[in-house]
Design a binder for these strands. Structure first.
Lengths: 214, 214, 214, 214
DNA sequence: AATGAATGAGGATTCATTCAT
DNA sequence: TATGAATGAATCCTCATTCAT
């Protein structure tokens, strides 16, 4: 009843709670975060969380729903684009992922954590399905390139795993990044354009050498 | 006092508990796993866990300690090996990581989860430090190769992130792997030599193209 | 202030809420029923219940008040009736109770439950008082009959207990009744005239044999 | 695991908790009683209740189990007894029920309350089944008497309802009983042998007049 | 060395109620 | 008059841990 109402007032507060939750989930994991923590961080009454979302699990799902909406559709559009070469499409994909992951490091850490577990089977499956679909889109681009002899005979799903895996590995720890970027440990590399550029360059160069003949 | 006693009997039991704990941590995360779960899975008395390890957190650390011991030293040995070329060293490293990660998927999932969080600061820091050290070892090999003009001017820490990230990405979900390996969802790809070969080939080819001129 | 306003609109809604509440109280008990349940069943806003009745407890009292009003006064009138013999009066009483209890099984289940408890002392006392008064009315009729040597020397309050107790026992469970009436378990025996007749006949015969000499 | 262990120590405490729970359930109903109340009354730690019984509902079931065990089997034995006449059997049954109900008024109040509701379907059904079985035992005795022309053609299940209903009605409220026994309101009539005798006499006389020709 | 019993703290959730509009 | 939003208190239950034996 009240759960789906999006009355003008509650929207802000819902978002507010979702953002607080996301940060805590990223930091402490789903079960490591208590509703008390969330309520405290969002500075709302403890009961509000259940009032708005029904349960901690539903709050999690609402968060995924909200954050995931941002990034839907872009990849599908790319695949069928006639203007771009396969290599250009791969570059666009890399750019899109780097951009998204670095812009929402908290969210992607949460998702990564949940994918590593096998609890919350429904969520897990949902995330897996999105991932599989994305991989398939990527695969078909790569296979087209291979058929056209523009690309070498590579292993498409593993190429995709390398792209996503590299970005995820970077997300694992600010601190590691900072060591190699020569910054102090509290610095946030994800919002640093220079760091983003560096990551993009690395992935593109690596994938290009891997895909292209000669 | 009793924590460090390693009477012949208790060693087996401790290992037994550690293994049960590791599986559950991998599956459900650290806070998602209760001592009750662990005691039940290991089929020991609930109080045994605290009796042997002192606390849940210390059990976690004991697990890390035990599992990490397996893989220490190998990389250090490699770096100073005079017999091998830089490329051979890189290959050995890739082989070592693929082997370890696929042999102990549970453990690496746990570690990955913990590195994504920033709770348990001590553990986190310890894991980060190991990772930094490994990266530095790798870096110095790559840099030597660059200096010798055997390797292109790449971004060493990110190359390392790509290797580890690719393997981690594969660990994320059996299910995703099985979709692309054409296996049924319950199949365990990590123990499949054919799958391991495929992963190795992909990483080596990708890293070779990236590192080598022409 | 607003509690006693009986504006034309609200009367229907109040009744509506009371009826919903009564059904739920009968089914799940007073504390087993939440205001949310009631509001949902009556299809009114959650806050309406407190708005109209002030509290859950006052709603309960309003329900008792409303339902009890139906059956007041009848017994008092009987006692002083000069036209009827004592036996006829007893029969009228039996008829009245059977009729009321079977017509309002929900209400009487609620009352019975509340009398069994000793919470809500005020309500409890009120119900007890009504019961005592009814018993006294009945007693004085029986005692008159005994004095006139029409009735045997029985134990009046226990005779009353047997009448009410028999009917209450029948209310306890539709299912038990249906087993012995040969009906299927979902059948509602309370609205079945045949069943009512059977119950009436049993009580009258039993009480007659008990009261009458020979 | 620990739930069914009946180690020497815990038995007393379990019984202690069960007794505390029974009194409170009788007084305030199942949902009206909190685990806090029970723990406080039994003077044990709050968590003990769940430790021993697993849940509030299971505690309830354990209570029923324990208390119901006392009175099993007696009625079955009666039915097949060749030494007794049907009337004697009926008398034994009446005596047995009066004795049990007055000895365990709390328990029978709880059961009565639960039978009036239709929550906790499993419990409800279990109670109903016991009741049906008892009624059937009683029926077959009455029917034998009718066949032998010792009893009039009565309605057996309703005769049983009158016996049980009368006793239950007496249980409803000490206070009502005391008004008619001329005692003060705090007096406990259930343990008063004189009161018990009076109740027994009433029921027997009433049932005898009802069953016997002439 | 090993464990059943016990516990205090905290978990998520639901409650009746109130309040601003 | 009527209601969506909000809340503090209380619910049951599970947790990691400790202790007596």
């Amino acid at each position: 009843m009240h759960l789906n109402t999006t009355s003008p007032m509650s929207v802000d507060k819902k978002d507010h709670i979702i953002n607080a939750a996301m940060e805590l989930f990223a930091e402490k994991g789903f079960e490591g975060t208590s509703i008390r923590d969330i309520a405290a961080k969002a500075d709302v009454n403890l009961a509000m969380v259940n009032y708005y979302f029904g349960s901690k699990e539903k709050l999690f799902e609402a968060m995924v729903e909200q954050k995931a909406t941002f990034m839907r559709g872009q990849l599908e559009a790319l695949e069928s684009d006639k203007e771009l070469t396969e290599l250009e499409k791969v570059d666009r994909i890399i750019e899109a992922y780097v951009d998204r992951f670095l812009s929402n490091p908290g969210f992607h850490k949460v998702i990564q954590q949940e994918m590593l577990k096998s609890q919350r089977e429904e969520m897990h499956q949902k995330a897996i399905n999105i991932f599989i679909k994305n991989t398939q889109n990527f695969n078909s681009i790569i296979e087209k390139g291979i058929k056209k002899k523009v690309f070498k005979k590579v292993d498409p799903p593993l190429v995709f795993a390398s792209i996503i895996g590299t970005i995820n590995q970077v997300l694992v720890s600010k601190k590691v990044c900072n060591v190699f970027a020569g910054k102090d440990p509290c610095y946030d590399p994800y919002t640093d354009e220079h760091f983003k550029k560096r990551l993009l360059t690395h992935i593109k160069q690596m994938i290009h050498s891997h895909l292209l003949n000669q």
